[in-house]
Design a protein around this nucleic acid. Structure first.
Lengths: 150, 150
DNA sequence: CTGTGTATTGAGACACAGTCTCGATTGCCG
DNA sequence: CGGCAATCGAGACTGTGTCTCAATACACAG
């Protein structure tokens, strides 16, 4: 079963109608290699003559975000991008060259959050961690010395 | 010396001209209690008849961001806000009720980042951690049981 | 203190993101 | 097969951020 079908099934299960535009968008999203913006989907939908309107793209992204099938990423340049992902709490490492992302779980962050709460007196309800860098395959094609350092 | 003066001095030292609009904005920013948006500054500048244009507000924020005197925060709702802060690498805990922020240093995050790099094979160049919750003073005015739990 | 060159300014046009309305369509359930 | 509610596309609308350009004002020299 393709990723697109998984999206469609999840929508169905959540009580959303399975419509043609939603199928089309599920297909587009499943085909994305890295992160994508709403504008990306709009333009791909137009170039592939899928006939999906702009408003529908935004509405669908919103629904998928609600279901945690897609997550918003705030790129360093201020843009909003999205990635398809598993519906569980996690964070992303984003490749700043090709846009591909890798999901990571807690990785010890829980401790950091508790430490911050203790020091500041805040009650921390929500957190977001985003990491940017180069993915293994982009690192490999990098010119210059082969050394890999931070 | 007020926070506004510090901003002005830093601009001067960085080679920017100390102009009237920049002084005015430094004053506005120093007066902010929590985070603020570009639109906030524009509207305050208008209501206080400071005569600072919209373009100048954006340009000044950009300059201050460049000097790390102000940092952009991506609120959970997608808005871009800013906070005045010390020019050193750090993160913020943001109160979702009053908008006040507290700065925190590493707090063990370095270890988390290294762990992620090890697991994913990415070279991590940049990271952003944002925490949202309630500040001590908002917690205190909270209705209901006095217990403080996450 | 005055003149001068240049960085900076405000106004307003522009490009784009995201929301909303509304009449037309279509998926779903009986 | 209906019928109705959810959904749709078009396009108006709001708001954000950028850009251009002529006018201004800062800094510095003299």
């Amino acid at each position: 079963m393709g990723a697109a079908d998984q999206i469609v099934i999840a929508l169905d299960r959540a009580g959303y109608r399975v419509t043609e535009p939603r199928r089309a968008l599920a297909g587009l999203i499943a085909d994305q290699r890295g992160h994508f913006t709403a504008a990306d989907l709009v333009s791909e939908s137009r170039s592939q003559r899928l006939g999906v309107g702009r408003a529908t793209v935004f509405r669908t992204i919103e629904a998928l975000e609600e279901l945690d099938l897609v997550e918003r990423i705030d790129l360093p340049n201020g843009e909003h991008a999205y990635v398809a992902c598993e519906p569980a709490h996690h964070h992303h490492v984003v490749c700043s060259r090709c846009g591909r992302t890798s999901e990571i779980d807690d990785a010890g962050l829980r401790t950091v959050v508790q430490e911050v709460a203790r020091r500041t007196g805040f009650r921390v309800d929500e957190h977001r961690l985003e990491l940017f860098g180069l993915c293994p395959s982009c690192l490999a094609t990098l010119p210059g010395p082969t050394s890999v350092s931070a």
